[in-house]
C-alpha cells in the first residue's frame, strides 16, 4: 500500500513538473511557430511507444 502511494506521488510530481515546463515552453517563439523542441519530440516519441506498447501488450505488470 505504501509502495502504491509512493509511486502515485512520484507520478503526480512528474505530471506537475511536465505541466510547469510546458507552460514555460508555450511562451517561447518555437511553440508559437508550431515547431517542437527537442524535449517535446522525445516526450512525443515516448508517448507514442507507451500507447502502442500498452495496446499491443508489450508493457505488462512486471
Amino acid at each position: 500500500m505504501i509502495r502504491f502511494v509512493t509511486l502515485l506521488l512520484l507520478a503526480a510530481v512528474i505530471v506537475a513538473v511536465a505541466a510547469l515546463a510546458v507552460t514555460v515552453w508555450a511562451s517561447g517563439d518555437s511553440a508559437r511557430s508550431g515547431r517542437l523542441s527537442g524535449v517535446q519530440k522525445v516526450a512525443y516519441v515516448c508517448l507514442f511507444f507507451l500507447m502502442s506498447g500498452v495496446a499491443v501488450g508489450w508493457l505488462g505488470a512486471d
Partner: peptide
C-alpha cells in the same frame, strides 16, 4: 491486458504527463 490497478494508474499518469510535455 491484466496489468493491475496500480500499474494501470501509473501508466495512465505517465501517459498524461508525456502528453502535456509533448503538446503543452
Amino acid at each position: 491486458n491484466d496489468v493491475g490497478l496500480t500499474g494501470s494508474a501509473l501508466y495512465g499518469l505517465i501517459a498524461a504527463a508525456l502528453h502535456l510535455t509533448a503538446f503543452g
